[in-house]
Each structure stands twice: as C-alpha cells, then as structure tokens.
Amino acid sequence: MSLLLEARDVTFRRQGDRVFKPLDVELAAGNAVVVLGPNGCGKTTLLRLLAGILQPAEGAISRHAATAFLGHASALKAELTCRENLEFLRAFHGTPGISASRALSRTGLTGLGLRPARALSAGQKRRLGLASLLVSPRPIWLLDEPYASLDDAGGELVDELLAEHLAEGGAVALSTHQRKPKLASPAGELWVQRAPLEEPA
C-alpha cells in the first residue's frame, strides 16, 4: 500500500501558542481517517495544514499526490451559476474529471445548473462542494465536516462517494461531529488534543 500523505509531529501556532499537541498522520491509498475532538481543538487547522494551506510551525508534511480540500466555506462564487462554478474549478485545478453535468446529477443537483450558487440552500451548497471534488479528481481528499447541513440522503451520498474514492485508490481524512462514515472497512480514528500553554524557560 502506497503512502499518499505523511505528517510527522506537526502542529500549528496561533498567537505564538501551539494549537494542538503535535500529531503524526499517515494516509495510504484506500485509507480513510476520521479526525475527532471537541470544538475548538484544531481539527480544521489540522486539515488545512495537511492540505498545505497552512505551513506547519513544527514537524514536516510530505504529500505524494494532488490534494483536494473542502472547507466550511465551499469555495463557490455566489454570483456564478452552479455549472460555471464547476467548469471553473475543472479548469483551475488542472486535473479535469467528469463533466459538470454528470457531477451535478451524481450529487442530486440535476436541473440546477443554471441557478446562481447564492440561490442554493445550505445543503445544496454542500452537495455542489462535493460535485467540485468530482470534476477535478485528486487522490487526497481532506474534508472538513462533510456531513454538516446535509439530510440523511445527503449523508448516504457522502458515504457512497467516499467508498468509490477509496476503491479507486484515493485517501480521505475528514472531521465530523454528526455521523461517522459507514464504509466497508472501518475508518481509522485520530484524536486531536488541545495543547497546554508553554512556559518560557
């Protein structure tokens, strides 16, 4: 099994203080990891670190494949239509996958292609975010609260997409509060712990 992403002793500092205790993370092809921990412990920060949006204050991260990150904000332009959003992302990330139309229908948004993204409900925006993962396939998925604001069908959709992605040799790390992914082989768990205040010597 090939490693797609490894992180050694990584942590981040905010206002000079560690956000969480240094962590090791390994994502191999076909692996899923659920990032767990109480509110404010740094789950989002960890995912953003793994994505390369933040640079680790300590430790090192190596990524061996292209990375996709889906955050709280869905990285969509409210003024553009759903289709325009997807077509932009398809070109922008440089790894074109299935067409915008297919991605829309796969995520249950058929017929909404011409609607501006701002007119979507919160759940539909999440679905459009998932569609953006499909139009430009990248092996490492880092998903921050993918189940948030989704209904039951939406949750099952996420599970299906995860299963397909893992079957194709991708890897996933996701944070969640609501439900845990139901997958063929259970996902690993990673607990993020708040770091204690350090004292200068």
């Binding site: 953003r48 994505a51 390369g52 949006i53 292209a66 990375t67 996709a68 990150f69 955050g71 709280h72 904000a73 869905s74 990285a75 969509l76 332009k77 409210a78 922008f92 990330h93 440089g94």
Partner: peptide
C-alpha cells in the same frame, strides 16, 4: 468564500 485558500492546493 474560501476560494482564496484553494490557491495553495493547486499545482
């Protein structure tokens, strides 16, 4: 809206 942070993911 989160599009800016996507700049650091790209190639």
């Amino acid at each position: 809206d989160g599009t800016l942070e996507q700049w650091w993911l790209g190639h």
